[in-house]
Nucleic acid binder design. Structure first.
Length: 804
DNA sequence: GAGTTTGAAACT
DNA sequence: CAGTTTCAAACTC
């Protein structure tokens, strides 16, 4: 069914409405992976690398049959996403979104937050690069009802696709396709046969400075909006949701940003066309839940929260470029009666500037329970907040932490990232939610690994200023909510030691900051985590947020998809991992250390006596505090976002160069590829628009880049040609599909061939042939040798076929 | 790879 | 706030 009415289509950009166009972009190497979405995904045929650099898989249990074909990129093949074997898959798209509490007609299910990078030049690149596909698959509706028994989050075909197509890359699209049946509503008889649905959400972004918009709409939601029955026919549908965030004047009453979400069924079969356009408030997530039912939140958060009682969630900590983004995770179990607030993400994934935020509905909400995305008991109502810095926007997500927060550092072989396992102490029995069928207790048991395969990304990120600052209030833990830590191996990444001085200003909270539980909040603590804790996007790291015990081991490591990030080419992001630091004296606890300055842990660095790791948590926290004391915005990105457009990006403090002319990487402005501004105190600055030196340098740099790209392209082309040649020639030799009866390139044949070549060389030498001629003669001889070998092989094959 | 240069961060 | 020192990255050879 086509949900989008013609009139809406007409107003939408072609790139949004035309999936073909998006697909076409695959040919463009520099295009972001999101564009690579095949119309008809052939999962098996799609190279994993092609597309999604970042993949988050929340559900370990993915039915092999299920396919994420609806996903925006072809690369999101099962192998890629499913490698995690999780039923839930997330495709992260970077966008400058921040969760907003602004009211919206639709209820948010899961927020995705991302920020556009200042460096992004192409809108699509960002979006494409960062996509989050959340795919949940449930084998049968029955599973939903059985969620309590079966921890595994299974909902058929639920897929969450987030794509940001905004030019600025800010808009975040988070689509959470869900089965037509709502868990809450369908609990009784539920639609038995909801089949995997695919949703594609495309956000067409406004400017970078536009407020982040988060929208998640499940199929059910769409259906509701459309007025269609939920149980109707979502089967086998592929929905395409297009979100067009529009920058609207800020009004106290209304949401700052309005997004239109258009759900479009790609597959019209048997479905009446439905079109839903709903304004989406930034930071709010559309929920599947029918009106009146508490909104169901999405899975990503759930994933985190869903950590099985017994199991721990693993979080790969990836360095994140923008320290400004902090995620606070509430580990503490929610109070049973806690309202479903738009509590947002338990999980905030930041990719560079990109942040993926997942909201998790209050566990108590009946609707949620019904939803396939069961949340684990441990999952607390999470309040996610975006804290906007006045000067420089920051995005922070707060996760309530169950006391004590359990974090275990995990080393994954071959991985450069630190992985942190978040272990919920909750016992399997405890959850207030268990009582209600709707609760996702079962889901808790199932591990939902979130895997993020980020290309290495380090970029200065312009952070979208959070327009709304919310104070996070820890929710009191109910006795039921509570969790007892069962795991002995648990480690606290961040001790929940109170740091009152920083609590008031969440914006300035340094990564690793732990907020003491608010009075009356019970033992719930809040830890401010750098997004890196949750996401390892920049680097190969993936984040596994799995609650299931099965994920306790590093085996969950997924293949890493290469993703172009933040407008950077895939090669840029993937082939250029974050540079390891070489600190020798600072213990990596001062801003001299780039890792520390970026809120990252050192990993695979060359530093000496490094304290920037989980083994020195206290020292690190202390250092962070010291840095903040000196400079409250020490961890904020230096490159602020300008008014609009890349040209407006500028260094927050300005540089102080004296000798470099601001044309070397010593200069932070130049390094960030921005021009010096009036706030710079540089001497002899040549880094300004009209500077001939700068132009020359840029020209040279561009030329060099072009050469590199050409070389890369040539290599790629050559490689592909060779592969193609091999694949095509193989059948020729194996006419009939069978192997040749003999191996013709035997040792003897090789030796004889070499003798022939040497002989040719000697002949050329004896005749005083020029070097070039000698080469040619040798090559020609080699060609003749090959032809003889081929001819013999073919003849032998023929003879064999006759004789045999 | 060693040494130098540079400018931000840290310190006084 | 200004001057100095420390530091690690950038750069040069």
């Amino acid at each position: 069914m086509d949900v989008v009415p013609p009139e809406l289509n007409s107003i939408l950009p072609d790139e949004i409405m035309d999936t073909e166009a998006i697909v076409m972009e695959e040919d463009i190497p520099t295009e972001d992976p999101a564009s690579l979405v095949p119309k008809e995904p052939e999962l098996t045929q799609v190279p994993m690398e092609t597309d999604v650099s970042e993949i988050v898989s929340l559900c370990p249990t993915v039915a092999p049959s299920q396919r994420t074909t609806a996903l925006t990129t072809s690369t999101t093949t099962d192998s890629t996403l499913c490698s995690i074997s999780s039923g839930t898959q997330l495709l992260l798209t970077s966008s400058g979104l921040k969760p907003a509490s602004a009211p919206s007609t639709t209820k948010p299910t899961s927020p995705v937050v991302g920020q556009a990078l200042p460096k992004l030049s192409t809108p699509f690149t960002l979006s494409a690069n960062h996509q989050i596909i959340l795919n949940k698959v449930t084998t049968s509706p029955a599973t939903d009802s059985k969620t309590s028994g079966n921890p595994v989050l299974k909902q058929e075909g639920q897929k969450l696709v987030v794509a940001s197509l905004s030019k600025t890359g800010q808009p975040i699209v988070l689509a959470l396709p869900r089965t037509g049946t709502k868990p809450g509503t369908t609990q009784g008889g539920g639609d038995a046969k909801t089949q995997p649905q695919q949703f594609k959400v495309v956000t067409i972004g406004g400017r970078t400075d536009s407020k982040p918009v988060v929208g998640v709409q499940t199929a059910s939601t769409a259906s509701q909006l459309l007025g269609s029955s939920q149980h109707t026919t979502l089967q086998a549908q592929q929905l395409k949701t297009v979100q067009i965030p529009k920058k609207t004047p800020v009004s106290a009453a209304g949401p700052l940003i309005t997004q239109f979400i258009i759900t479009k069924a790609l597959n019209n079969k048997g479905l009446s066309s439905q079109t839903s356009v709903s304004p989406v408030v930034p930071g709010r997530v559309l929920t599947q839940s029918t009106p009146g039912t508490p909104p169901r939140t999405i899975t990503i958060g759930e994933t985190l929260t869903s950590t099985p009682q017994t199991s721990s969630s693993k979080v790969a900590i990836s360095p994140l470029k923008s320290p400004s983004k902090l995620t606070v995770v509430s580990v503490a179990s929610p109070s049973p009666g806690s309202p479903q607030k738009s509590v947002t993400l338990p999980l905030n994934v930041a990719l560079g500037p990109q942040i993926l935020t997942v909201q998790q509905p209050a566990t108590t909400s009946p609707a949620k329970a019904g939803t396939s995305q069961s949340t684990t008991q441990t999952v607390k109502p999470v309040q996610t907040m975006t804290v906007g810095g006045v000067g420089t926007p920051q995005f922070k997500t707060i996760f309530p932490l169950a006391t004590p927060p359990n974090v275990q550092q995990i080393q994954v072989p071959g991985s450069r990232f630190h992985y942190v396992r978040l272990v919920t102490a909750t016992t399997g029995s405890n959850t207030a939610q268990t009582g209600s069928p709707s609760t996702n207790t079962a889901s808790i048991q199932t591990a939902k690994p979130v895997v993020v395969n980020p290309g290495a990304v380090r970029m200065s990120v312009p952070i979208v200023p959070a327009q709304t600052i919310k104070q996070v209030v820890p929710k009191p833990l109910t006795s039921t909510a509570q969790v007892v830590t069962s795991q002995t191996q648990q480690r606290l990444i961040m001790p929940a030691t109170p740091l009152p001085q920083i609590q008031p200003n969440l914006t300035n909270l340094p990564p690793g900051t732990v907020l003491a539980p608010a009075p009356g909040t019970g033992n719930v603590g809040y830890a401010v985590l750098p997004a890196q804790y949750v996401t390892q996007l920049p680097q190969s790291a993936f984040v596994t947020l799995a609650s299931s015990s099965s994920f306790s081991t590093p085996t969950t490591v997924q293949t890493q998809a290469k993703l172009p990030l933040n407008g950077l080419s895939a090669s840029d992001t993937t082939s250029r991992p974050r540079k390891p630091c070489n600190c020798t004296k600072s213990q990596c606890l001062k801003l001299y250390c780039d890792c520390f300055a970026n809120g990252e842990f050192c990993n695979n660095c060359n530093c000496i006596n490094c304290f920037n790791n989980l083994d020195h948590e206290s020292e690190r926290l202390k250092a962070i505090k010291a840095c903040l004391d000196r400079n409250p915005v020490a961890f904020k990105p230096k490159i602020g976002k300008g008014k609009e457009g890349e040209s407006d990006r500028r260094h927050s403090k300005g540089c102080n160069c004296k000798k470099s002319g601001c044309l070397k990487n010593y200069c932070e402005c130049y390094e960030a590829k921005i021009m010096c501004s009036s706030i710079c105190k540089c001497v002899g600055c040549k880094n300004f628009e009209e500077s001939p030196e700068r132009k020359t340098l840029m020209h040279l740099a561009d030329a060099a880049e072009v050469r590199v790209q050409q070389q890369t392209a040539a290599k790629t082309k050559l490689s592909s040609q060779i592969s193609d040649l091999l694949t095509r020639t193989t059948p020729a030799f194996t006419s009939g599909g069978g192997k040749l009866p003999y191996t013709f390139v035997t040792k003897e044949v090789a030796e004889v061939t070499c003798d022939c070549l040497l002989e040719q060389a000697e002949q050329a030498e004896l005749t005083n042939q020029p070097y070039a001629t000698a080469e040619r003669l040798i090559l020609e001889e080699f060609g003749r040798c090959l032809m003889r070998i081929i001819s013999s092989a073919g003849k032998a094959k023929t003879d064999c076929s006759i004789n045999c």
